[in-house]
Structures are given as structure tokens and as C-alpha cells.
Amino acid sequence: MNPTLELACELIARPSVTPDDAGCLELLAQRLAPLGFDCQRIDSGPSGERVHNLWAKRAIPRTGRGDAAIKTIVFLGHTDVVPPGPLPAWSSPPFEPTQRDGRLYGRGASDMKTSIAAFVCAIEQFLGQNTQPAMDIAILLTSDEEGPSIDGTRVVVEQLQARNERIDWCIVGEPTAVQRTGDMVKNGRRGTLSGRLTVYGVQGHIAYPHLARNPIHQALPALAELAALRWDEGNAFFPPTSWQISNLHSGTGATNVIPGSAVADFNFRFSTESSAESLQQRLCQVLQRHGLDYHIDWTLGGQPFLTATGDLLQAASAAILETTGLHTELSTSGGTSDGRFMASICPQVIEIGPPNASIHKVDEHICLEDIAPLTDIYRRTLERLNALAAA
């Protein structure tokens, strides 16, 4: 069996639904330690809901050189998976890795346990050919990417920043491909800013509207204006910022009562052309112009990040071409990833992974023919970056 496939199966067999790690990190630490990695657990969160994090780093001898002179590449990923959903709907048990019809089935097969297995196997192959590399190599793994993402990568990045860890390049193993591994690389992600808007009115009998104030009637014109606003035009890498309402709640349940408040949940997915602060300010100006009595609870899920060019993108693109013959497409589409946290301390962050068509679905899978190329892309990227570090 292909080593990456074998390790992926071992990981899929562990039911690591967020935030449970189910022993994945211990398995990986045991695999990395013999390669010279110092494996540190940086777990976080309340008792009973503890998030499991692993920071594993293989540092080269300094031999008179300071840390600033040595490059570091980090592979970033998550061992947690979303719940499998209704078990009878699966063609095979979600935590029993199953091969059929040229595919590997199981929860996490695509998102993203195969990528983690490819990280490890690529590093093993690289170190087998480069016993004295010119750069440090690290892996950061968490069990809290699919969940709140509060005690996972963000916490580890804060600790790395506090101790002045230098990180030059980061590869995130999120499933980024469309048809074949390597056909798309994410070189950035949009920011995400959510809000819960509460518009206050005056509750009353529906037959006496002059004695009440209907918050739904007051809110709708403002919401319609917000939905029609052009927040920015985007740029060469990002589409225009979007604003969407996800939930709208009001009413007591009775048909003869004007409600006292209305609540709308909304979200911005924003480009680098806008800031969270500017979006907040513009939205509040609309609400104030409509004379609303309101309150907003804001949640900034992540800032946008972008790697427009650089050594990492060039090395990865060349590795993809050499492995697959594909000229990869760059994209910033899709949701958020933990790359948004790493981007705060690392100047070059990209995402490379397998096709994402089945992620979070029943019968999640990856084509077997996509596995070996993924490992090769990671290994060849390491080789190119190592040559740069040694120059």
C-alpha cells in the first residue's frame, strides 16, 4: 500500500469529530519524533471541551548562524472532522476507511486527513534524500478547525508569536482542487465579519398600530438598502465584498401581536479593498439614516490574507507542473481556513490539497489517483525551498 494511503486510513479510522482528537496527534507525534521533530502539545480550552494542538518542529543545527538567517517552512492542518450525519445514508461506515471503485471513502478522506498523511510522508521522503537540510521544518495541527476555531491554531500562533518564532512559508492542506490534485491553489482568503442586529420597537396589539412601533417594518427598508449596496469592487485577486442575511427572527408566535424587536444575523465576506472597521462604519451609517433604535454584536472571524507572489508560490507552482503537468490556477474563493491565523506571523501562506467536491458530504471520498501526486507536490516544494534556503 502507498505509505500516504496507509497513514490516511489510520487517521480516518479515528472518529475525531471536533474537538475530539481521538488519538490522531499522538499517532502523528510518534511518526515525527524519530525524524528529529520536537513535538509539543499546546492544548487549550475548558475542561471537557479541550482542544488538542500539536506543534512539531525539526530545527537544523545553528553552527554560528542566528535564527534570523534560517528559513522555516510550516505545514498547517486539522485532524478534526465534521459529524458524519445519518449513518444509514453512508455506503460504508464513515470511520472505516474503505476502498472501492478507485476511491478511498471515509470522513476526513478529503478534508483533510489525506493531506496530513501526505505532509508526513513527503517530509519522510525529503529527509531520506536530504539528511542535512538547510531549513527548519514544522507541522502545526489542531482539533478545532471545523468548530469555533478559538482554542486551536489561533492559540498556537499567539504562543509562537510571543516566543518570536520565525516562519517564512506556510502550506495549508485544505482541499483546494476542483478536478485533479494541483489544478487550483488558494493564495488567499476573504475576511469574514458577522453581526447580530437587534432592532427595537414597541410591542402592542396588531389592531392598534398607532400605540406600537413595528421593528420589522422599520428594519426592512434599511436591510433592503444594505443588500443592494456595492461595498467595494474587489481587485485582481478578490471578488467584490458581499453582504448576506443568514437568519431573520421576530414575533411572539401570536398573529395579533406587533413584536417588540427583530433580530437579523448577517455576514460580510470581504476583500482586501475593505477593512472590518470601514464595513462596520458604513453599515451603521445606513441604520442611523433610517432612524433605527438598534444594537449590533460583532464577530470578526478573520482578516483577509493574500500571497500575491513569492518564493513559496513559485516553488509550489513549479512542483505542481513537474508532478502533474498542470499550470495551477490561483484562487481566493471559498470559505475561511486557519491560514488566516498563520498569515498574521507568516508573510507567505498558500493552500494546496485534493479535490473538494465531496467534503462535508455523506460518502466523503478521495480518488486514489489523487493521493500520490499530493505527496509528490509537497516533497518537490520542500526540495525547491531547501535549495533556496541553502543558496
Rank of each mutant, 00 (worst) to 15 (best):
P240S: 12
S358I: 03
T176M: 11
Y294M: 06
A118G: 07
G253E: 03
A254V: 08
P355A: 15
T255H: 11
E26A: 15
L104C: 04
I377C: 13
H290E: 13
A224M: 15
A134L: 15
I206V: 12
G301T: 10
D38V: 09
T142Q: 03
E364L: 15
P34M: 07
E146A: 09
A109L: 04
L248N: 02
I73K: 00
Q159S: 13
A219W: 01
A219L: 01
A33V: 07
P221G: 11
S344Y: 05
H290C: 06
G102A: 07
A236P: 07
V349N: 01
I167V: 15
N130T: 15
A122L: 14
V74N: 05
D370M: 06
G335C: 09
D20Q: 12
L87C: 11
D67E: 15
T336P: 02
I60V: 15
L28C: 07
I320V: 10
V257E: 02
L76I: 11
G108N: 04
G48I: 15
G204M: 05
R230F: 10
H217P: 00
N267L: 08
K57D: 10
L223Y: 15
G201T: 00
P84T: 10
G182L: 08
F37A: 04
S317F: 06
H360S: 13
F268I: 13
L248K: 00
D144N: 06
S16Y: 03
E273P: 03
G353R: 07
T328E: 04
L385A: 12
L229E: 08
Q244D: 14
W298S: 11
T307G: 06
R100Y: 11
G310C: 14
L220S: 08
R166L: 06
N386E: 10
L193K: 04
A343E: 01
G102T: 03
E233T: 14
A212G: 13
A56E: 14
A138C: 09
R269H: 09
C346P: 03
I258Q: 00
Y105G: 05
T336L: 03
C346S: 09
P84S: 09
P240I: 09
G191V: 10
L197E: 08
A56S: 06
R154H: 10
F75S: 13
Q285L: 12
F305G: 01
I12H: 02
K71V: 05
Q218K: 12
T79I: 11
V51N: 09
A372T: 06
A222P: 00
E10F: 08
I171E: 02
S333R: 12
T176C: 14
Q179V: 11
G106L: 08
S274E: 07
G353P: 08
G201S: 02
N256H: 00
S337D: 06
S246K: 10
L160C: 09
E6Y: 11
T131Y: 05
F341D: 01
D67K: 07
A207Y: 07
L7R: 01
A219I: 01
A228H: 14
D183C: 12
D232N: 11
R180G: 02
C121I: 12
A254R: 02
I296G: 07
G128F: 11
P175F: 12
L76P: 03
T18W: 02
